[in-house]
Simulated assay, not measured.
Amino acid sequence: MNASRKLLLAASALLAITACSGDTHASKKRDAPSSPLGFELAFAGAGAATADDYAAVPEARADASPMIDLTPEQLAARLAAGNIRLIDVRTDAEVAEGVIPGAEHIPLDRFDPARLGPPDGRDVVLYCRSGKRSAMAGAKLAEATGAPVEHLAGGILAWEEAGRSLEQP
């Protein structure tokens, strides 16, 4: 863990303790609970990472969220540029209804990061119906590789909603 991350965690803990130490007498009336000044800033960067976050700061990959959300537009651009291994983790029945062009099918119940083989230079991108199962598969893959994993946020539903086409397997 780098020094700035340790400092952020220590500051967050101190701010949380400070927030809990206020006067709790019933005679004081408040409209809403308040946090100490700067509390929001301490947690401002704690949200989900996006692909743009990692493009701007490549060394951030090691300390950040294991999942990187891609929009349908970002995925389409990555597919057009090549050099990605797109994996569909939906069921056989779902895949029979259509897949994103170029996708490889490995259902979540058979998804094993060790069976993906050695890295071949392509980035792995996962997707499912809505993004939940690809996040589960991505967490397994991130744990195995120690690196964040990209997935299609909103899954194939978001892909179709964005007007992108499917192909029959």
Rank of each mutant, 00 (worst) to 15 (best):
E160K: 03
L9C: 09
A139Q: 04
K6V: 13
A153C: 04
D69S: 06
N2V: 12
A32S: 14
G45Y: 14
E160Y: 00
A77I: 04
K28R: 11
E143T: 09
A142H: 10
I84R: 09
R129T: 04
I68E: 03
R133Q: 11
E94H: 04
A62Y: 10
S12W: 10
A56E: 15
T50V: 12
T145L: 08
D92E: 15
D112H: 10
P119F: 10
G22F: 12
A46T: 11
A13F: 07
E59N: 11
A96V: 11
A19V: 09
D109E: 11
E40F: 08
P36R: 13
A49V: 06
A56H: 14
A80S: 12
R122T: 14
E59C: 09
S12M: 14
E167P: 02
Q168P: 00
R110T: 08
A60R: 15
D112V: 08
E150W: 06
D52V: 11
A10T: 13
A93I: 08
L8A: 15
N2E: 14
A42N: 05
L152M: 00
D53A: 04
D52L: 12
T50R: 15
S35D: 04
K132S: 01
A77G: 07
K6T: 13
L9K: 14
L157R: 01
E160R: 01
M136D: 06
L37T: 13
I87P: 08
S27T: 09
E59Q: 15
L41G: 15
L141E: 01
A51G: 05
Q74Y: 10
R78H: 05
G102R: 05
G38Y: 10
P169R: 03
R78P: 00
R85K: 12
E104D: 10
K140N: 12
L152S: 02
A62Q: 13
L70F: 08
I84D: 04
M67R: 09
D120S: 06
R5S: 13
P58K: 13
R78F: 10
S165M: 03
E161N: 02
L8T: 12
A147I: 02
L79H: 10
I156R: 01
A114S: 14
G98Q: 09
T50K: 12
T18G: 01
A76R: 11
M1K: 15
I106C: 01
A139M: 03
A80L: 03
